[in-house]
Design a protein around this nucleic acid. Structure first.
Lengths: 340, 340
DNA sequence: CTGTTAGCGCATTCAT
DNA sequence: ATGAATGCGCTAACAG
């Protein structure tokens, strides 16, 4: 069943040799064949609704035209746009993404990676959170091209596509300062992931640059990018310095947690405390108040990552490259001048 | 590069014939081989870190162990959980999903479908909105198993997995009635998609069953499942009957639109008007007020759909079956007794 | 129980 | 410019 029609059927109908059909149908080799016969083959092909069997092609060429795409958690609104961007770029060149949600189960993760390797993927794009992840090692050992999303090996040994996290934090600080805030607090994300760390660095750098004081108790570290962790961290800051008038966070979900902490402390946003998130997640503009946030061009990141990968697949020895995209501050209702 | 090690290398190391290696490595045929030799082969295999090349396998068996998964819009929070459920079930049986975001571009859509067909997918799972979609026809013509998600051919000619939409609407109506509401309005979704239609039917049926009046002006049809359409529909109802105290919607985004319409009309939720959504999207509990909504077990739906598909792949002539899962009402802050 | 043989559908040499 | 032949890595039918 399926595509019973093979290259041989087309050959018979067009009265040529299968080899010729192959050449005529392949854009690269069409030049090798008489224009007239090529035309005959083409019509025969779509008369029979011929579809090249990419499995067979892959076996022959030892390129599967598939790319493994590792996503930690598809239900996190951050990732779907990235996937779309990756998909856009990949399909443009005839590649098919093999998506895998690496999730939290290492066993399943390993199995998925193995499956992709068995399927002869031509490369990997990994947006996965952990760096200790095995497949990366496996992939690199196998000489497979690899591009990281939103994280890097700091030694620059592997290509990556990220947003300029430091710059994003700077934008947030600048906005708060422009509004008149001077007592800024920061809810940091986990410091063992590059986004968490770099956003934090950007924040402190911007504070220093602005000549503002930053007592340690106005920075609180969330153990995870969750609402609960954000609420806890925010509460700690409010406790340590009730006079804080603006809080910048490393992530929208942490910001949501801040909303909760403010509510619990009977404080209002933005009247008492202004808040800025990071990522500009979908629906974040639907919160009350709508959250000001640093927008990350997720889709573009995915696209650029795929682009990087294809580049590497193209020429074996392209040096690893890191692409950094610009974030943008989206101002909404969660930021206002301090009451004072 | 890649897996330079083939079944032949293993054979050499284990001192057996390649055919034997194949048998020993394949769970189905392991019984045919001496336990001792099998063991020898196994150790040889993982000593060499042998990975079966599933491309080659697929060529031989003419089964790719891949399934095409058609999703209309990955960034819609409804779909990622479905994808996860599908993925769960599929990988459990060694299948790999080939995800495609059908989106709004018919040309790209067609191309993606073609790519999957060329990749010899063993079946399709389609959560796509439109029924006129070509691939379905193609798939069925090719004799490929197909399972629909959240939609059905009403003639029952193709397997499908859905939630009991009518029942969901009933739950919503019942809750409103229990709270004491009698003047209910309904913001319906598009009637040319089965979810929109069936949710509407469930609503009217429940109203009739409860013996409540339902003047036509208290039902308004949204042209799409968007916030804007919901706001417009809700405004129409409020205009037609300012006394309406409860509005049920076909979808959470329509419900968000209702929030907007209420705000515009200087009405409060739930004090003046109670609202119930449908789907229980992520973060919908973060709205102000948190939205009461009919929860759809998305992940289970995906899982069940994949299950159905595998069943069909197993036995050629399994009759099409429709699986309907139970929804559940999640009560939050958007519903309260009428002010009266 | 294991070795042998023969392709799956295609791309690619080498002839012609 | 095209035909012929070969083999990618694997499984399956057939021998032995």
């Amino acid at each position: 069943m399926q595509t019973a029609v093979t290259i041989r059927d087309v050959a018979r109908l067009a009265n040529v040799h299968p080899g010729t059909v192959s050449r005529a149908l392949n854009p690269h080799t069409r030049g090798l064949v008489n224009e007239e016969t090529a035309a005959r083959v083409l019509t025969a092909a779509d008369q029979l609704a011929y579809r090249p069997n990419s499995i067979a092609r892959g076996l022959k060429t030892s390129r599967s035209m598939t790319i493994g795409v590792l996503i930690p958690d598809l239900t996190n609104p951050l990732f779907p746009p990235i996937v779309l961007g990756v998909d856009d770029r990949l399909t443009r060149d005839g590649y098919t993404p093999l998506l895998v949600n690496t999730g939290s189960d290492p066993a399943r993760e390993r199995a998925s990676i193995d499956a992709m390797l068995a399927r002869q993927v031509d490369g990997f794009i990994a947006a996965t959170a952990r760096l200790d992840i095995e497949p990366l090692a496996v992939a690199m050992a196998a000489g497979l091209p690899l591009v990281l999303i939103n994280r890097t090996f700091e030694d620059g040994s592997v290509s990556a596509c990220t947003v300029d996290d430091r710059r994003g934090s700077e934008l947030a600080v600048r906005h708060m300062i422009d509004l008149g805030h001077v007592r800024l607090g920061y809810v940091a994300g986990p410091q063992n992931v590059s986004t968490g760390h770099r956003r934090y660095l950007g924040f402190t750098a911007a504070m220093v640059a602005a000549g503002l004081a930053l007592p340690p108790e106005r920075v609180s570290y969330a153990g995870a990018f969750t609402e609960a962790a954000g609420a806890q961290a925010c509460a700690a800051i409010l406790r340590a310095d009730p006079g804080v008038s603006a809080i910048i966070t490393a992530n929208d979900r942490l910001a949501i947690g801040c909303y909760d902490a403010l509510t619990a402390a009977a404080l209002r946003c933005p009247e008492d405390v202004s808040i800025i998130g990071f990522n500009d997640m979908m629906f974040i503009d639907r919160l009350r108040p709508p959250l000001s946030s640093v927008r990350v061009p997720q889709r573009e990141i995915g696209y650029a990552a795929a682009d990087l990968l294809l580049e590497q697949i193209g020429n074996e020895d392209t040096p690893p490259r890191e692409v950094m995209l610009e974030p943008e501050l989206v101002v909404r209702g969660s930021t206002a001048p301090p009451a004072r």
